[in-house]
């Protein structure tokens, strides 16, 4: 017998952040958007349950067609803010802080791929088409699979739109 889901009313974020959610984005009611700066979410972006976005130190801007998975943590490092481009998928348990991406779990950023548990140091710029794998080893992706990956992402988002119930009203101030 499956157990009942507990309503997560008790874990409601203390300080709600100001938000600008695109009407075509899908955000689960149990995501946690906290902080004082603006959190902007683009069209067709999926935010999974229990994803955590913290704008205490700066604004967060998430582009179009992104997937922000459960239990990942996005935090702006300073007032310059954190910008997540279009078609980025941030997987479970990933931690993204400013320009710092650490202990990522399949953070897929643009044309790059960061495999689970790889770490990007502070101030480091990871060039396009970089694959980080293993114990933060790097290589340049020459497989030319970005087209297929983009198609996969679009289909994924399409499917998730049907599966995740969006509850943007919960985050309106």
């Amino acid at each position: 017998m499956p157990p009942r889901t507990r309503p997560s009313a008790s874990t409601e974020p203390v300080s709600k952040s100001p938000v600008d959610l695109h009407p075509a984005c899908v955000i689960d009611g149990t995501a946690q958007l906290t902080g004082t700066y603006l959190i902007r979410v683009g069209a067709n972006t999926i935010i999974h349950p229990k994803a955590r976005l913290n704008s205490s130190n700066g604004p967060i801007t998430i582009g179009e067609s992104c997937i922000i998975s459960e239990r990942c943590m996005l935090q702006a490092a300073d007032t310059n803010g954190l910008v997540v481009g279009d078609a980025v998928s941030i997987e479970c348990n990933a931690v993204v802080e400013g320009r710092e991406v650490k202990e990522g779990t399949d953070v897929e950023v643009g044309n790059c791929k960061l495999c689970p548990m790889t770490e990007v140091a502070e101030q480091e710029v990871v060039p396009d088409y970089t694959v980080m794998y293993g114990y933060s080893e790097r290589r340049i992706d020459a497989s030319g699979s970005e087209g297929a990956r983009r198609k996969f992402l679009d289909k994924h988002i399409e499917a998730l739109k049907a599966l995740i119930v969006s509850n943007p009203a919960k985050f309106k101030a």
């Binding site: 495999c115 992706d141 497989s143």
Partner: peptide, 24 residues
């Protein structure tokens, strides 16, 4: 091939972890 609906050749061996492809 770019055809997603009906995959055709050519095929390559691709690593889903580090994205190495035998095309390289």
């Amino acid at each position: 091939s770019d055809q997603v609906t009906a995959p055709t050749g050519p095929y390559s061996l691709t690593c889903s972890y580090c994205h190495w492809s035998s095309k390289e």
